[in-house]
Amino acid sequence: MFQTYGVVQAEYLVEAMRWTASLAAIAMLGGAIGGALMVVLRLSDAMIPRAIGGAVTYVAQGTPLLVQLFLAYFGASAIGLDVPPLAAAAVAFTLWASAFLGDIWCGAIETVPKGQREAGLALGLRPRQLFWRVVLPQAVRPAIPPTVGFLVQVVKNTAIASIIGFRELTRAGQIVANVTFQPMPVFLTVAVLYFALCYPLSLAARLLERRLGSARIGPITV
């Protein structure tokens, strides 16, 4: 019945890492689209979109991701929808990532000094030109470090999806550890695989930051 940790078990973990990577990719992509939508809503001049954007952000940030997952998985069943674990996890993670990325990006846009806007207006730029040519380029750089930091969080938080039976890296690690009784090598492998997913993200971010830095676009500090 019991096995020794070996190639078959390691392959099983690598297989599970693909599910972790898939869920993280869905959450990042969905979160990027949703986050952009959040920015549009929250920076809107009209009150109702602003209120909706704010409410979504507060609810998504003010409730544990675990609870959101339970609601997406078991709650959907309660209203008659049969959602597989991946779909439930994708919905919950997308909503969660949208709220946080929206918040990060709103914050970055707000760091652009008011004087920049006023100068643009004085030059006769239209609001749209003002946003795309003056505010956004200056908001990108301060947005990168927190965005990447959050994306790394997304990868690691996919482990929570194991609770609804999504067989990702952490759950696979538990299963293998339990059948081999060798937790150390199993979880070391799990840690290495997580690192392999997260480190390239940080690396890419550093490269991006350096490139944007050399272009001399950034908030002007006095």
Partner: peptide, 18 residues
């Protein structure tokens, strides 16, 4: 629960067993 030997486990070919 596949993490509960000997009731639910994954076998040597990583299929559900127990």
């Amino acid at each position: 629960s596949l993490g509960t030997p000997p009731f639910g486990i994954t076998n040597a070919s990583m299929e559900p067993d127990g």
